[in-house]
């Protein structure tokens, strides 16, 4: 049986950084899955961008809840990034924040790119988001950063997997 779900790269932070980028992503998979377990110097929301992103290409819709209510919000085009978390989920406590981002048909060059995510922090809330990169190019790099001036803390992990369909 050929390998279907393969690790591509893992970044475990040995120093605090404002963002993490995966470059030269192989174009040999069907979907990408990015798994994040992180904390930050200051509680903040996380955002993503790709090599395709410009100020008019990327938007997103979020659905979230924190135990007292549910909400929904959009990030419209106009920025060169899109927020995929809520409630400043990337908190300062190590291990509390996790997220799984699915980059569907990322190497396809005929359709726009959709990214669908789930993020969790039991001390903050839960969130689901769908993000649309309205460009048909292939995704070759992904950047995860955060709103504001905070940094991702030492020990935060970012693991990129590839999934290959038959």
């Amino acid at each position: 049986m050929p390998k279907t779900y393969e690790p591509i790269s893992t970044q475990t932070l040995s120093s605090a950084v404002t963002g993490v980028t995966f470059t030269s992503i192989p174009q040999t998979y069907t979907d990408l899955v990015l798994v994040i377990n992180a904390s930050a110097s200051t509680a903040a929301n996380a955002w993503l961008s790709t090599n395709l992103t410009d100020v008019s290409s990327l938007s997103g819709t979020r659905l979230y809840a924190d135990g007292t209510g549910a909400g929904t919000a959009r990030t419209s085009s106009g920025n060169d990034f899109v927020v995929f978390t809520a409630y400043d989920q990337v908190t300062t406590t190590a291990g509390n924040f996790n997220a799984v981002l699915n980059f569907m048909s990322y190497a396809n060059t005929t359709t726009n790119k959709t990214i669908i995510t789930r993020s969790n922090n039991a001390s903050a809330g839960v969130c689901a988001a769908v993000c649309m990169e309205r460009k048909t190019g292939a995704i070759t790099s992904i950047t995860i950063d955060m709103v504001g001036t905070g940094t991702y803390s030492i020990g935060s992990t970012f693991t990129l997997y590839g999934i290959k369909a038959a």
Binding site: S59, T61, R62, L63, T72, T114, A128, A129, R134
Partner: peptide, 17 residues
């Protein structure tokens, strides 16, 4: 299922559980 689509305009955009 986790599903969705975002158009950045119009009414047909949503994220669904």
């Amino acid at each position: 299922a986790l599903a969705g689509v975002d158009l950045n305009t119009g009414v047909y955009q949503n994220v669904m559980l």
